[in-house]
Design a protein around this nucleic acid. Structure first.
Lengths: 226, 226
DNA sequence: TTTATGTATTAACAAATTGTGAACTGACCC
DNA sequence: GGGTCAGTTCACAATTTGTTAATACATAAA
């Protein structure tokens, strides 16, 4: 899975737990940073500016609640999501944890799947619009969200297929795409079109961009290079 | 306690639980409405427009997950907070519940104090943006609070759907909205309308605004640009 | 140089998508 | 009941995009 562009800081003094959570959240597409005690958590939080902080409550140096209080007292961490992950399941801790300003309070043991769901739920609530898939290479900008291509600050209008083809090639500059790969990616498996069709689209792209950024690899396919 | 101006709808088929929760949340300052099955929950939700909906999962008529799905598929309930309160503590239900679009998943039995903490935590997170959602782009002003559009100081009257469509597009200038996205956002998942319907509304907006601010991206969708 | 192979170019055609005017359906309001 | 309006659909026109076929061009091996 590719990056969601979200950074998560996990603080726990048990290396095993740290590792399990890190593995699972990374697999889910998050960027994970770890800390093994309260002070380290605060230190790293200030540096990496995570979007979410997962805190164990019982930790050396500073416990989770203290970490939460310290962070919440700073304006720049008012908005940061905080989730307590703890073995303390008593009512008092639960209430206190949330009243310290945490956004969620989860008790161990917890399955990775459930934790991931809860993390996703937190982001879903806060998220505006995720990831920007814009490609920027030299003077060329390809923005699939806006369906827009710019060359040297000038807008170029591409048709759907042209855009998809260009985006495919530009997504991996230098890599050669076989004609078959192109057909599968841009046209789909069931659609059958002739080989010349690709050529024609390539030509239109070259023409419209006015850039020599697509190279023909004879007998093989095409590649993007800038 | 004085009112927090927040309305909470609770749906559960056990009268005792309903009463306990209602009592506690009311004491905390919330305005509480109750429902004893899924259908009633949906019905009342549409009328009272609660800020938070607490759903039991196992209920007559429609279960909680179904209620959640129905509501989330409607544009006006996209932002409403939903919390599952259930006896189902298995991992699958938990994950499924959250993935349906709920904001929290809590298992019974739960102490009133903890529930209140979690409810408060949900509101705390959401309330942080009491912002003015008015969009101002160039000479165009779109105010969803007043349901009003102005072009160059002149009032324009748009119908509901027209307004929602314009607001959606204008909320992210430049970004292309697929026809599907538009249908989901403006009409909701369960409503099925023809493709021409979007076109017609787009046309009316263009006509009324007298501005060329909506661009057609053939084969893809529409985008706002000013 | 010739030939074989594969690509570029072009114009013409086919297909897909969108724009438009008119008309239909319910709500709602005199 | 007649009128108005929002929302929707329809049929068809207008437009854009996708594809093909035919031909010209380029390159490397024989």
């Amino acid at each position: 899975m590719e990056s969601k562009g979200k950074k998560i800081l996990i603080a726990d003094d048990e290396p095993d737990i740290l590792e399990i959570i890190q593995y699972n959240l990374t697999k889910e597409g998050y960027e994970v940073i770890t800390a093994k005690d309260g002070d380290e958590a605060i230190g790293k939080a200030k540096i990496v500016r995570p979007d979410l902080i997962i805190l164990d409550i019982m930790m050396p140096k500073k416990n989770g609640v203290e970490v939460c209080e310290v962070l919440r007292s700073q304006p720049s961490f008012k908005e940061t999501l905080i989730l307590f992950l703890t073995a303390l399941s008593d009512e008092g801790s639960h209430v206190r944890g949330l009243e310290t300003g945490a956004d969620d309070y989860v008790t161990k043991p917890i399955s990775p799947k459930v934790l991931i769901s809860r993390v996703n739920a937190l982001f879903r609530r806060v998220n505006k619009e995720p990831e920007d898939k814009t490609l920027k290479i030299d003077g060329l900008t390809i923005d699939p969200a806006k369906f827009e291509v710019m060359v040297g600050g000038k807008d170029i209008t591409l048709a759907k297929k042209e855009f998809e083809l260009l985006y495919l090639l530009a997504s991996r500059p230098g890599r050669v795409f076989l004609r078959n790969e192109i057909l599968n990616q841009v046209w789909g498996n069931e659609v059958i079109v002739g080989d010349r069709t690709i050529d024609v689209h390539i030509r239109k792209i070259r023409q419209k961009l006015g850039l020599d950024c697509i190279t023909t690899v004879k007998g093989v396919g095409y590649k993007f290079n800038l």
